[in-house]
Design a protein around this nucleic acid. Sequence first.
DNA 1: CGTTTAATATGTATATATTAAACGGTGCCATACT
Length: 510
Amino acid sequence: MKLENLLYEKFGYAAFRAGQKEIIQDLLSGKNVVAMLPTGGGKSVCYQIPGYIMDGLVIVVSPLLSLMEDQVNQLRLIGEKRVAAFNSFRTMEEKKEVLRNIEAYKFIFASPEMLQSPFFLQALKRVKVSLFVVDEAHCISQWGFDFRPDYQKLQHAVRQLGNPAVLALTATATKKILQDIIDSLGLSDTALHFHSIDRPNIAIQVEGIDTLEEKKMRLLSYVKELQGPGIIYCSSRFWSEALAEGLRAEGVEGVSHYHGGMEQEERMLIQQQFINNQLRVISCTSAFGMGINKSNVRYVIHFHYPANIESYLQEIGRAGRDGKDSIAVLLLSGADHDLPVSIIQDELPDQKRVAYFFSLLKKSLLQRDTISFADAEYIGIAAGLHEQHWRFIRYQLEELGAVQDGCILVSALSSEIQQIINDKVLDRLNNKYEKLQAMRNWLQTLTCRREAFLRLFHDKKQKQPKNCCDICGIDVTDYKQIQKEKSMPVYEWKTELQLLLGMKRRWDYE
DNA sequence: CGTTTAATATGTATATATTAAACGGTGCCATACT
């Protein structure tokens, strides 16, 4: 009763959505919660309501700066002023100001990297933290082992902040990933809220194609025929641009590309235009998607397939959030199989480079007594390590206790440690190759793709959809654009003029 | 595998052609409190 009142008072909603109330009650009763909720299912309510009831501060860990800014703005819109994002968008003065008045805040958003900063943690220790939220918690499992190791270190932050209740939220997780999250955060007394990941309104199609030319033609005909808006996923920046350009050259309007190599401003603009229906098609790498709250995406086409089935689930899951019929098409040709292997190989340092790095470290240690992380990173670059490789090695050294006060200890140079690191690299590679193999096996499935797919997530088909998968049979015409020459709407003269001059596009009004 | 970049070959040298090697995808941070 009290919870509903608060919900209405703060958010204007009359009733909770599925799962929200149970999550809130578990948190209030002192449990940790790991929950999978569909996107747009009101994740923020799950921590904001308990936040208002509990007397201390709420920390929200978020993977992307733009997500943080978004959430801060949304809170401000409902009148909450005691909120701040603590990240590199802020100047040093602004950050100091926030920390000086830390008592005045209710919600602080931060990246996992920020939560490793002693400067930040010390200030947080002055106040009571009552809730620690990890948003998009699958990142712990997806990124934490090598790409962003600070995701694996969140449990240290939780402990330092006096073990507040932890809420881990995600929209896409297998049971294995949920377990990874629990293990990594070191949670006990945890309530699991798991919902089926089956999305019966998304038809799944895999299409074998012989040549690259043919694949481009298939893509073009899909983009021309399917009802939009749609997303095209590629595995390289190059192809995301090339496909967008190719489609435009063929007369497709409202196409843009998106990848991590673009300027932040441009990325935000394109994302916004897509959400506001000013763009019809986005050709992109995996950089696009997280935090995209768009309900009416009608198709997702994979021009290249991702290296694991979890990413595939995430990517096709961006279609049909409104529950309406949508389709996921994967275009597969023999030449596609080498790319994910190469990408995986690049993710971790090979033995030769590790050995070279340690030999350089040894040499350097003869000249001075200690090696700071900054020096070691520099040495790493000289040894041909990528930034990501260096961070992986650093994380392993930290775990092995071979570092102290931001410096590498002499003990790190033992051949034993080098061996352990090489073993860890092999572990991770094997793990990634296994996931890739699972993805490939699924591509070869001869039985219902949805069933095979759900099995990998320990899940089951709820009921047989009319359009299930290419093996059960899909009527693609169901997803084609309705020809509406007759019903072309007529707007008032101002709008028609804008349409004529290309200032607006017709689908802005549909 | 396809594409880009770097290295080599040519040979009055310059600038282009040819060949070999490298690369490919996700993002945060960098401060300095008492």
